[in-house]
Amino acid sequence: MRLRSLVAAAVLAAALPGTAMGGDPARGAALAAERCAACHGADGRSAMPDIPSLAGQQPGFTTLQMILMREGIRRVPAMQPFVEGMPDQDIEDLAAWFASLPPGPPQDRRPRDAALLAAGEALIGPRNCAVCHLPSLAGREQMPRIAGQREEFLARTMAEYRDGRRIGADPQMNGAVAGLSDAEIAALAHYLAQRD
């Protein structure tokens, strides 16, 4: 497992021009077992409603978001005790660990709803999701993997972006979901959650 994780991290590092990814996934695994697994799942797939899965997440995204939370720029009360004063090295190690885990849906993923799925899929193009998250919806660098994420978490996040309660490193997501109805957000969340 350890060797596989290291190889995965090396491949990711090579893809990032000029970015030395210093994360040590083995060290990250130990940190995650202690601090993250209770909510985000031992295998990085959250079994807890409203808590995101982190398995297979882009390490650049995980790192950036933890830093934004630590700096008080992105405010997530539940995360605050964990990120408060967290050293950069811990953040990079955790990001490398979660990136090394195979992504996949939560065990409690609900069955497909064909109508909702179709309605969600129809919004992917007009909302330009693939411009940043790529056609695979696996993300790249600081843009997250959204395929296979927990459905209710996706829906809440998009509503927060829409309603101006969440701002990213820039306001691109606020623009991407502006004007979506709750029903459209539900459809998009269902489609993304069903994508593997």
């Binding site: 909302r127 691109q172 004007g179």
Partner: peptide, 20 residues
């Protein structure tokens, strides 16, 4: 901003602005 940037919002399905 989104409304100014995207007159196509009135159509179905709603069109979001491409990231700048």
């Amino acid at each position: 901003t989104a409304l100014i940037a995207g007159p196509a919002l009135a159509q179905q399905p709603a069109q979001a602005p491409v990231p700048g």
